[in-house]
Design a protein around this nucleic acid. Structure first.
Lengths: 236, 236
DNA sequence: CCTTCCCTAACAAGTGTTTGGTAGGTTAAC
DNA sequence: GTTAACCTACCAAACACTTGTTAGGGAAGG
């Protein structure tokens, strides 16, 4: 719970401006900058969390720094004590999420599981990540596509490539071992599995009826075995 | 022909008071207004198509009217001869898409098919719609969530509700007839099927390797029967 | 002359960001 | 033990620019 101690600043009616390109972006040295990374990390994370919430709900472009500041109980300019741009907040949110995501993924991929168990573990890990970083995942879903081309967000493209490689390899191994069907287009299958998992972030709400593990279990059951009844009457 | 509950936008009054000089906004008569709907429908559709393209690629908020005009080979102000706001372009794009979508859906739902055939027909119809309105679908995917609450876009919420009802009913019928599995949470299954279909718009490119029908066939195969091999070695 | 379709040029409101200040706490000097 | 210096975390006010939108005008064709 953020301590919104100050007078909950009502929405300012003043003005601002957005300049898309900022040349001053080179930390010439790692010495103590004006603010940047040196300030209290707790408050920093707190502000990033509220920013992520607003980004996820309204979309990045539709979110103004004043809305973020409002939600955090401060004024727009004060955010620039902690961060040096709106974009850097976005970057930090996404980078932190991907870092944690890959920590989990790498652990799975390095543990020499069979294809089916790997798939199950990856899916389960994904739903845990959605549970913990639902806002970041939602932002990632909505914005990564047009962010990835920007040099600043190259790590998004990197992650996507690594992601695709890991999934394709798992699926291929499964097909070779005759654990997964061979008659399906493997890229289509990849996109199918990938999308079915991540779009859940758009409706998932933590604290709902299902735990991440329960959702993962049911998703896996559908993806692996389908929704058609097995012994039932054959239609068509 | 589209006899669906057509909530085609009646231009509601501007709830967002931003422009001071807009006294009357009620097209009570369908007579030739200043611009609105009367102008050449061909050029109109042309402009809407390019607008949809830009919206889909950059996101609605990130898209400026100048970018749209640029892409259309004209200046920003000139767009306002054809449309009376950026938002009305968005509205028209989405409304036109949903009208056509529901024309197809209603035809399926009214033809008394069994649950499995209904599901197959709905999925196939959806992929055809993605093929024809890929930009509109992408916009719908990204923006509908935060647009639906606005009164102007109430038709989005209506459509979503109708959509959910149709799908849930189809799934329930299938479970009763023992065509679909009974051990799955039906709402989860609904979201699963819904999402797996529509997110395809984010990567689908017309003229690719697969026709909409082919993609629909493979998706249906995965959704119905799963990606696990049937006779193969059983893992777990 | 009228209509269609577009351009030029501007408007006000809103945008991200910067600069300078300052309340309040902690530290150090006297 | 007062005082001075310092630091953190914020506010207040502005800045330069972009945004959607409008008003007036003009070229082309009927």
């Amino acid at each position: 719970m953020p301590s919104t101690n100050r007078t909950t600043s009502r929405s300012t009616k003043k003005s601002t401006d957005k300049s898309p390109s900022k040349p001053t972006d080179k930390p010439t040295s790692k010495s103590t900058k004006k603010q940047d990374v040196s300030a209290s990390p707790a408050r920093r994370r707190e502000l990033l969390d509220t920013a992520a919430e607003v980004f996820a709900e309204q979309g990045y472009d539709a979110t103004t720094v004043r809305k973020i500041a409002d939600q955090a109980g401060m004024l727009a300019g004060s955010l620039y004590y902690h961060f040096d741009s709106k974009e850097s907040m976005l970057e930090e949110i996404l980078a932190a999420f991907l870092d944690e995501l890959w920590a989990g993924y790498d652990a799975v991929l390095e543990s020499d599981l069979g294809p089916r168990e790997t798939l199950a573990a990856l899916v389960t890990e994904s739903f845990r990540e959605i549970d913990r970083h639902r806002a970041a995942v939602a932002i990632y879903q909505k914005e990564s596509k047009h962010l990835a081309p920007q040099p600043r967000f190259a790590f998004l493209a990197d992650s996507q490539q690594k992601f695709e490689k890991a999934w394709l390899r798992t699926l291929e191994r499964g097909v070779e071992a005759q654990i997964f069907r061979a008659d399906l287009d493997i890229r289509l299958t990849y996109r199918f599995v990938r999308d079915t998992v991540w779009v859940a972030a758009s409706w998932y709400r933590p604290g709902g009826h299902h735990s991440p593990e329960e959702i993962a279990r049911q998703y896996l059951s559908m993806v692996l075995d389908g929704i058609a009844a097995r012994g039932g009457p054959s239609a068509d």
